[in-house]
Design a protein around this nucleic acid. Structure first.
Lengths: 332, 332
DNA sequence: ATGAAAGCGCTAACAT
DNA sequence: ATGTTAGCGCTTTCAT
């Protein structure tokens, strides 16, 4: 900046004014400074400025998700980016991989880079460690799972209601013997989905005692194995409800292995790509990652703009998409 | 930092030494400072330090891709993140959306945040605008497409060879009338893929004159329409080669609309998820986004470590995955 | 082994 | 409308 000032023959503050588009600069000055800046390929240092600037904003925000390679989070990331870039805010994105230590390390790494705010899913038991930062005024918006040990905004899917919807759908198609296949019970959203399933059965007056409920399925292979065991049992279910993407895929391959894909109904939580091109098409409870990202970004930006209303958990509705597999009857 | 120093009753430089783990500090001092830092929830400001620090590294890098919502780039992003986080480097990620202005804006935004380096796909005609930055010592690694108007490292897929491979595969299964369905001809990789296709036909002595070559298909709908037109023509192709994901999907829906999915062969460039669960399974030329990300990060880090060897374009091989659709014969 | 002073690139506050 | 001085939070250099 000093070089630009020297070349243009002006004071550094004038350069600063031109760069930041502040008022009260003559157009001759503006032209002179801009030309000098261009010829030196000058790039202002945002962080140096923020050191002294009143609001201290870095125009940067951190996003912590399960994995940036997961299309669900990719879509969410995109929505956040969209809202952020409209305000000149850049986005750091990192993957947690269900590792609580990694979560803390990444949060710390972002804070050291002075992000203006954080949008994060969380895998730690408690997020109380974030309380000091929250008090300091850094806005936090939790996504996917609600925070524990701390009060902050959250944007989550309607897990229990979505599961209930899926369950009702299968009940309405005549099923009574519906198996539940769930993810790790240590995951809050997984428990919510199971709760929605069981409560809906209760409302319908179906005894849950004999209902097969398998949990702690975290990958395709485990899901495949669990479904095969169910199908091969003496009293196999007439319908399956799978609580997560990979479990759904494992179920599909298991059904096909027994040539039952057109005889046993299947509804999966979370949409899978090309589900409509499979035979049968896979009926799912679709989440809305784009909306989650949008809302989270909107809340974060509002907080940055001074919104001091009480924290709130926003629930984004899920949607049942019927494609065939969920509409198979019990006597097919 | 001053507060920490005051609370611990030491000089600021001692705090700095403790925080950065520099040698020559007594363990009593270390304990005292750490405790003071903890009790104040002190987070060092990385950027303030970098202002004066000799190497001026922000431990931050920028990644520019087509869209973070695209699973291909999600996987690539993940690989970059993996390599970066191992060295304490955070990653900015942004989406270009084929918008050259956006590219320049994002590059500038990253540079103002003083990223240590940039990994980027590019949609501008020339990247000469990056030359000053490159001279300044900021390492640049181009991915997906090679740079123009500037000399820098690049990591790309073997587009032409992959296309040739697909073409040979179809030729070997007896096809002579193979239609090519390509993306926008303004995209370098799209042209490369078409070149590979035509050259392989040439090598096989197949006259390309009567081969249907449709380009500028950028989405599923356009691809669907183009394939339907081909199938309905007087001399329909016995095989299709689609040069991109969305085009492949458009082709699948078109084949199904005419109930020809088991009679007309199909090979797609770029893998699509669940391709193996479709009927028939979709044969593809799979790229290796993980390897591209890994290599790009590796090169960038090497440059940061002082590697001054001449720039090079690394070519990541593609792979044919046979799943059924590409093995249909011409007389099915 | 520890600390004081200067300065990184910039903006705030106050001149002029 | 423009320039000057101080200082943001840190690291460097140089003393002690």
């Amino acid at each position: 900046m000093r070089q630009v000032a020297a070349l243009a023959g002006v004071g550094t503050k004038t350069v600063s004014r031109v760069i930041n588009g502040e008022p009260n600069v003559s157009s001759a000055m503006i032209a002179k400074v801009k030309q000098a800046a261009d010829s030196l390929d000058y790039q202002p240092d945002l962080h140096a400025g923020n050191l002294r600037r009143a609001d201290g904003r870095t125009k940067t925000l951190g996003l912590l998700v399960g994995s940036v390679a997961n299309p669900f989070y990719g879509t969410l990331h995109r929505a956040v980016e969209e809202a952020a870039s409209a305000r000149g805010i850049a986005v750091f994105a990192s993957s947690l991989d269900d590792d609580p230590d990694r979560e803390q390390g990444l949060v710390s790494a972002f804070l050291q880079r002075r992000v203006d705010g954080l949008i994060l899913t969380t895998v730690t038991k408690s997020q109380a460690y974030l309380a000091p930062e929250l008090r300091r005024g850094t806005p936090l918006v939790f996504i996917d799972r609600e925070p524990a040990g701390i009060e902050a905004d959250a944007v989550v899917s309607d897990n229990a209601a979505g599961s209930a919807l899926a369950t009702r759908h299968l009940l309405e198609h005549g099923h009574r013997r519906i198996a539940y296949l769930g993810d790790l019970d240590s995951i809050q959203t997984a428990r919510e989905r199971r709760r929605g399933f069981l409560e809906e059965l209760g409302r319908a007056g179906v005894a849950t005692r004999d209902i097969p409920v398998v949990v702690d399925l975290h990958d395709e292979v485990a899901a495949n194995r669990a479904v095969l065991a169910l199908l091969d049992s003496t009293d196999p279910p007439t319908a399956l409800f799978t609580s997560q993407n990979l479990v759904t895929i494992g179920a599909i391959t298991a059904l096909r292995a027994r040539a039952l894909q057109n005889r046993v109904a299947l509804v999966g939580f979370d949409d899978i790509s090309l589900a409509d091109l499979l035979t049968p098409g896979i009926t799912v409870i679709a989440q809305n990652p784009q909306r989650i990202g949008e809302l989270a970004a909107e809340r974060l930006l509002a907080r940055l703009d001074g919104d001091r209303t009480p924290t709130h958990s926003y629930v984004v509705p899920t949607e049942l998409i019927a494609r065939g597999s969920g509409e198979i009857g019990p006597h097919a």
